[in-house]
C-alpha cells in the first residue's frame, strides 16, 4: 500500500480520502458478492446457522446499543424476544393473521411493555439496574410458563406458518437468508445513522459525561427510556422472525440463559462499535456448533474460548476490526469547509 508522496497537501488529503473510500467501496462490493454467493456454496445446515446469526445479531444489537451507548447492562432482552415470538405464534396459528401483522403487534406490545417498565426501572443505575433487568427476565420466563393458554407452556406452539413474500414461501434457510440479511443490514445502517445524528451525540454525552449532558439540557432519563424501547423493538422483531422461521416456539427458548447469551454476544462482539454485535452473533452461533463435533467436552471448550476471547479482545471483535481498519486507513482530518 505505498501511496506516492504528493507535494501539495490538499491534493494529498483528497487522494487519501478518495483512496479510503475506494477501498471501502471495493471491500463492500466484494462483501456483497461473497454474501450473495454463500448460500449457493455452503450446505443447507451452514446457511441455517447464518440465518440464526442474523436473528441473534438483530436482537443482540439492541442489547449492545444499550450497553455501548448508555452503559446499561440489560438481561431483559429474552422477554422482548419472547413477546415477539409468542405474538407471532399466537396470532398466526390461532387467528391466521399474516406474519407482518403479527410482527407489528409483537413490536407494539414489546414497545409498550418496555415503556411502562423502563420508565420506573431506568431510574436505577449500575448493578441495581442490571439486577432489575435480571428480575424482569425471571418474571418474563415465569409468565411465559404460567400463561399456557397463550404460550403453550412447556409444550410450546407448533405449526407456525412460514413467511410468504409476494407468493414466495421462505421455507428453506437459503430463501430466508436472502430475506433476513438485507433486513439486518438495513437495521444496522439505520442505527449507524442514529448514532451519528444529534441523538447519537446526546447518547455519547450521557454515557461519557452524564453531568455535562444534564447541563446541556439533555433529558437523560427520557433518552434512556427511548433507547430501551428501541432495544425492545429489535428484540421483538427478531423473536417474531425466529418464530416464523423455526415454525415452533417453546418457553425453553426464552429463559434467562437466552438473555445471558444476548449480553455475551454484545460484549464479545464489542458494544461500542455498531458492527460488533454481528461478530458476536456469529461467535455465539458458529463456535458452539464447530466445537460440538469434538464430543461431550464441547461446553467446556466453549467456555474456554469465550474467556480467551474476552481477555484478549477487551474492545470486542468489532473493536478489533475497527482498530485494524483505522490502522490500515487512518481517517484523514475533515477537509476544510466540508461541513459534516
Amino acid at each position: 500500500m505505498s501511496v506516492e508522496p504528493i507535494r501539495a497537501p490538499a491534493a494529498a488529503l483528497l487522494t487519501h480520502r478518495h483512496l479510503r473510500r475506494l477501498v471501502g467501496a471495493t471491500l463492500a462490493l466484494a462483501g456483497i458478492a461473497i454474501w450473495a454467493a454463500l448460500p449457493q456454496v455452503l450446505s443447507r445446515g451452514t446457511v441455517d446457522l447464518l440465518v440464526f446469526t442474523a436473528l441473534y445479531a438483530i436482537a443482540g444489537l439492541g442489547v449492545a446499543f444499550l450497553l455501548g451507548q448508555c452503559g446499561i447492562v440489560s438481561l431483559a432482552q429474552s422477554v422482548f424476544y419472547g413477546i415477539g415470538a409468542y405474538a407471532t405464534a399466537y396470532c398466526c396459528t390461532t387467528w391466521g393473521w399474516p406474519w407482518y401483522a403479527a410482527l407489528v403487534i409483537g413490536m407494539v406490545i414489546s414497545g409498550a411493555t418496555a415503556l411502562v417498565i423502563g420508565w420506573p426501572v431506568l431510574r436505577l443505575s449500575g448493578y441495581f439496574l442490571a439486577l432489575a433487568t435480571l428480575a424482569l427476565a425471571t418474571i418474563g420466563h415465569v409468565l411465559f410458563l404460567e400463561w399456557d393458554w397463550l404460550t403453550g407452556g412447556t409444550l410450546g406452539v407448533g405449526g407456525i406458518p412460514q413467511i410468504s413474500l409476494f407468493g414466495l414461501v421462505l421455507n428453506t434457510p437459503q430463501k430466508f437468508y436472502y430475506f433476513i440479511w438485507p433486513l439486518a443490514a438495513l437495521i444496522y445502517w439505520l442505527l449507524y445513522n442514529l448514532l451519528h445524528s444529534r441523538s447519537g451525540y446526546a447518547m455519547r454525552a450521557m454515557r461519557d459525561a452524564p453531568a455535562a449532558a444534564l447541563v446541556l439540557g439533555i433529558d437523560v432519563h427520557k433518552l434512556k427510556v427511548r433507547i430501551f424501547v428501541l432495544s425492545a423493538l429489535l428484540g421483538s422483531l427478531a423473536g417474531s422472525l425466529f418464530a416464523n422461521y423455526v415454525s415452533f416456539v417453546s418457553v425453553d427458548s426464552f429463559g434467562v440463559d437466552r438473555a445471558v447469551s444476548f449480553l455475551l454476544l454484545a460484549v464479545v462482539g464489542g458494544a461500542q462499535s455498531v458492527i460488533g454485535p454481528l461478530f458476536g452473533a456469529a461467535f455465539v452461533t458458529l463456535v458452539p456448533n464447530l466445537l460440538s463435533r469434538v464430543g461431550d467436552v464441547h461446553p467446556l471448550l466453549f467456555a474456554g474460548v469465550l474467556v480467551v476471547a474476552v481477555i484478549f479482545l477487551p474492545q470486542g471483535m468489532g473493536g478489533l476490526v475497527t482498530t485494524l481498519w483505522r490502522r490500515l486507513w487512518p481517517p484523514a482530518p475533515p477537509a476544510p469547509g466540508s461541513g459534516t
Binding site: L300, V307, V310
Partner: peptide, 12 residues
C-alpha cells in the same frame, strides 16, 4: 463475562 465463562466451564 470472564467470570460467567468460568461459571460455564465449572458446570460443564
Amino acid at each position: 463475562l470472564v467470570t460467567l465463562g468460568g461459571a460455564f466451564a465449572v458446570s460443564a
